[in-house]
């Protein structure tokens, strides 16, 4: 096969009855046909494996939609989206998602305040300042940071960060949004730094050298040439990191608490969308109850938000990419 004429294994292969490059001299026609059938089967099997990923997405959407639709036949969408109280377990039941949404947003904003500047500065340091050897040490350390299970971060928040916060502000709740935001921030630093660093390093050397030639200092080269040139990649990493913070589950479940609470005070106990989903599945919630359906309605909200942010990140990357030769 010439590299230019890739054929689609599922249909095209053997459409002419034979593989264009397969040997025909020694093997004879029967052998040839067996080989073609074999190739087509293999192509089909491989295609099905690749198609599974699409089925997963369809599965997620179908599963979430089916139960959510039942939920929304009981609870108006409007009440769900604008209600300020979330109490599915007590009477009168209230299904306003805003307290959960606000909890998720508060953790996301708090962790972004920590991770975006630190992550970008880490990326600048690794790409512009650090030498080869220092990079060789720092990058694996950041990879380890990214690989620590989230339940461990939850433990760290609850047993180390919260007591630390309470030393400074004694009225801090045992479970609070601030500690969760801090650990989630630490957790997503590697997301920002590694993706941003890739973007910074992709900026061609000539741009840097041109600026140095004009007498710019390293600070001016970094902040006025390299970062602006890599801005699309940097923004994409920011959006992905925030989306990760919204989807983060265990650290916020352990550290931020389980109290749906519409508040702006990060020292109070709150509940995020993800923590709510966990709290429902920890209890015994029979299928068919409204509480069971809330699982899917909240999951749907979470899925739409994170998927939207991921798509936005890819769009920023392709739409605002600077092309350098």
């Amino acid at each position: 096969m010439a590299p230019t004429e890739r054929t689609d294994g599922s249909e095209d292969l053997g459409a002419t009855g034979r593989d264009p490059v397969a040997p025909t001299v020694v093997s004879g026609l029967g052998f040839q046909r067996t080989k073609n059938v074999q190739e087509r089967i293999i192509g089909g099997v491989l295609f099905s494996c690749a198609a599974i990923s699409t089925l997963v997405t369809v599965g997620v959407v179908v599963v979430l939609l089916r139960e959510s639709l039942i939920f929304f036949s009981n609870v108006p969408v409007w009440e769900f989206l604008t209600g300020t109280r979330w109490q599915p377990a007590f009477t009168p039941q209230r299904f306003g998602v805003l307290p959960l949404l606000a909890g998720s947003v508060m953790v996301a904003v708090g962790s972004a305040i920590i991770a975006l500047p630190l992550g970008l500065m880490t990326a600048i340091f690794l790409s512009e300042y650090a030498g080869q050897r220092l990079r060789g040490i720092l990058k694996p350390v950041l990879e380890i940071l990214a690989g620590i299970p989230t339940v461990v971060y939850g433990y760290f928040a609850l047993t180390f960060i919260t007591p630390l916060l309470r030393q400074f502000v004694p009225e801090t709740d045992v479970f609070n949004a601030a500690a969760a935001s801090i650990v989630v921030g630490i957790m997503i630093i590697p997301t920002v730094s590694s993706l941003s660093e890739d973007a910074l390093r992709a900026v061609p050397r000539a741009l840097r050298e041109g600026a140095y030639g004009l007498g710019a200092t390293k600070l001016e080269v970094s902040t006025k040439v390299v970062v602006p040139a890599a801005l699309s990649g940097v923004f994409a990493s920011f959006i992905l990191a925030v989306s990760r913070a919204i989807g983060e589950t265990m650290a916020v479940t352990i550290a931020a608490g389980n109290l749906p609470n519409l508040t702006l005070n990060p020292l109070e106990s709150i509940q995020t969308m993800t923590a709510y989903i966990v709290s429902v599945s920890l209890g015994d919630t029979p299928q068919g109850t409204v509480a069971y359906q809330t699982l899917f309605a909240v999951g749907m909200t979470l899925f739409i938000i994170t998927l939207g942010m991921n798509i936005l990140s890819q769009w920023v990357l392709s739409r605002f990419r600077e092309e350098y030769q």
Binding site: A50, G247, T249, L307
Partner: peptide, 27 residues
Amino acid sequence: YANRGWVSKTIQTNIANLAGVPSIVYG
């Protein structure tokens, strides 16, 4: 195997998006 048609492009985009779905949604 895939030609660079819309089928494989769709699968590819979809895989990139799936990698960003929160783990609890898979749950």
